[in-house]
């Protein structure tokens, strides 16, 4: 296992370098001068300032040198300065990262646990009413635009019913501390985490249902039944354990989408994470900030992937042994 993690970390590092290079390419491929891309909105920065930027990032040097400079800067977590927000990009991001981790982490957990449970339930009652209800809901949420669902959730649960706050991370100026504050944040978390989770819950429920039905037909399930095991034991111990493997793989692949979804959800709920920051960067055409967020969100996805890979290995003895 440690060897596997090391090899995965090596691969992750390669991908990350690839992403940084992609970023570099994008800065240079963008219409206009790279310096003005870095400065923010093209055109309105003054010439002396742009010259200063060029010198600092070596933009007058040959491209390979520029790339090396850029790489070494980013690897030292120096993403440059956001002139719009008046702060170094990395500070802006680290400031906002915890909120995003909280949101996407809880949405991931909710969707995986509830999705697998719903899918397994639907499969075990194939063709019955509960199956139809779960399958239909999954189909619906699978087709619903996240941001719209979020807006409708605000409309219903916040504006109409007033059950949950529809805005922000915590009550501003409440002066809460400790547990009270945690409870307040949790209260704010419910709507965004649920709406973000719903789409993925639908994905996992559909996948689990299909996978459970598939595995149910395999020979070893017949063996288990021939042994006289009760259906619940057969389902949990034999079917579900095997059926969950493709779901875990899918969850890993979906991690990227989860982060993308967080951008939309944070925008709607004014959740102060890096997604919201991305929206602000877009509005202000702060490309330097935008690209910094892009690298960090990619790194987040890679971390999610690593976690699901480790999970997979814990469940499946075959893979570790083959190495």
């Amino acid at each position: 296992m440690p060897r596997f993690i090391v090899s995965r970390l090596g691969k992750m590092a390669l991908i990350l370098v690839g992403i940084i290079i992609l970023n570099f390419v994008l800065i240079h491929a963008a219409p206009g001068d790279p310096a003005s891309v870095m400065a923010g909105e093209a055109g309105d920065a003054d010439a002396a300032f742009l010259q200063q930027l060029r010198e600092r990032f070596g933009l007058d040097k040959p491209l390979p040198i520029q790339l090396l400079t850029y790489l070494s800067n980013v690897l030292r977590l120096d993403f440059g300065y956001s002139y719009r927000q008046g702060m170094p990009v990395i500070d802006l991001i680290t400031d906002r990262l915890p909120a995003t981790l909280l949101l996407s982490g809880s949405a991931f957990l909710i969707s995986l646990v509830l999705g697998v449970a719903a899918g397994a339930l639907a499969a075990s009652r194939q063709g019955k009413v509960s199956d139809s209800v779960i399958s239909t809901l999954a189909l619906l949420f699978y087709a619903t635009p996240l941001f719209w669902l979020a807006l409708m959730a605000v409309l219903l649960f916040s504006v109409q019913l007033g059950w949950f706050p529809g805005f922000g991370y915590e009550s501003v100026g409440s002066g809460y501390g400790g547990l009270e504050r945690a409870a307040d944040i949790l209260h704010h978390l419910v709507l965004p985490a649920l709406t973000l989770g719903l789409f993925f819950m639908a994905v996992y429920a559909r996948m689990t249902r299909a996978s459970v039905l598939e595995v149910s037909r395999l020979d070893f399930v017949r063996t288990a039944r021939a042994k006289g095991l009760r259906p619940r034991v057969v389902l949990v111990r034999h079917i579900l354990r095997n059926a969950i493997l493709p779901v875990v793989t899918l969850a890993g692949l979906q991690a990227g989408q989860l982060v993308g979804g967080a951008v939309l959800i944070e925008t709607v709920f004014a959740w102060p994470g890096i997604g919201r920051l991305m929206f602000e960067a877009l509005e202000q055409r702060d490309y330097n900030l935008l690209l910094g967020i892009f690298v960090v969100s990619a790194a987040m996805v890679l971390a999610f992937n690593l976690i699901t890979d480790i999970l997979y290995r814990l469940v499946d003895p075959r893979i570790g042994a083959a190495a």
Partner: peptide
């Protein structure tokens, strides 16, 4: 794999914004 590891919505946002 590289393209699959990149968060796709974020990449789309960056691409459209820059171009």
């Amino acid at each position: 794999e590289f393209f699959q590891s990149v968060p796709n919505f974020a990449l789309a946002v960056v691409l459209v914004a820059i171009f």
